[in-house]
């Protein structure tokens, strides 16, 4: 399993993501700059980390989503390569049209930085196999635009297809997201976007390892 971390101006969680992927897979990911037009053939997981790409100008993720590397990521996703977007990475994936919906400003109008509870709504995906169906895990969030919105018709089909992967649980919805949605996959199930930061809860030094399962699932190292 080889992974890649995408880097763009203003993304600042790339180092945390590189550390998490390295610790969990035992191999450092390659890094891919925004202007690159292809990604190595042997990469099985592409991660877009969090941050504030292009200063959140226009709309969060809007400008990043139009950079050349995104076309390369689209082509990889169409071939079935796994793509994970966390926080700003999730915003970039919806802006690029790789995931349905949009991420709006938090209902509170405030930046939230705290720990929430997530229900694993669908444990039968490449990103959640390490968890039990319905398991509730802890996870940190840190964002200003995490209020997931999608039209009623698309939402209905997403629910029917098992595309809602994580919901904020136990009344911890920090942003007003529709149906408490915290993470969704595309119809094929190989592109996951989520607002919470699992890379920041993977080892004892973080105070827990609840986020580890997402990487262990995607990197195929659950037993390790």
């Amino acid at each position: 399993m080889k992974s890649a971390v995408v880097q763009l101006p203003g993304l600042n969680r790339d180092r945390d993501m590189i550390a998490a992927l390295t610790k969990i897979s035992g191999k450092a990911p390659i890094t891919v700059w925004q202007t690159e037009t292809s990604i190595a053939d042997d990469v099985d997981l592409i991660v877009i980390p969090g941050g504030f790409s292009y200063g959140d100008y226009l709309r969060c993720g809007a400008i990043a989503a139009r950079m050349p590397v995104m076309q390369a990521i689209k082509e990889k996703a169409e071939k079935g390569v796994k793509v994970l977007g966390v926080c700003n990475g999730f915003q970039i994936l919806v802006e690029a049209g790789l995931l349905p919906g949009a991420l709006m400003m938090n209902a509170s109008l405030k930046f939230v930085c705290k720990e929430v509870k997530l229900e694993v709504v669908n444990a039968e995906t490449d990103f959640t196999r390490a968890y039990e169906q319905g398991q509730v895990i802890r996870c940190p969030v840190a964002h200003h635009e995490g209020n997931y919105f999608v039209d009623a018709e698309t939402l209905k089909s997403m629910n029917g297809n098992g595309q809602v992967i994580f919901r904020y649980a136990e009344g911890t919805n920090p942003n007003g997201a529709i149906e408490d949605i915290a993470g969704v996959v595309n119809a094929r199930g190989n592109v996951l976007g989520m607002m919470p930061h699992p890379e920041n809860l993977i080892e004892a030094a973080h105070g827990g390892s609840d986020g580890r399962g997402i990487f262990a699932s995607a990197l195929d190292v659950i037993a390790a």
């Binding site: 226009l58 709309r59 809007a62 400008i63 139009r66 919806v94 802006e95 349905p100 919906g101 949009a102 709006m104 919105f149 999608v150 039209d151």
Partner: peptide, 9 residues
């Protein structure tokens, strides 16, 4: 269509 508006919302 390409940048100024997000036609989802």
């Amino acid at each position: 269509e390409k940048l100024l508006a997000n036609t989802v919302i």
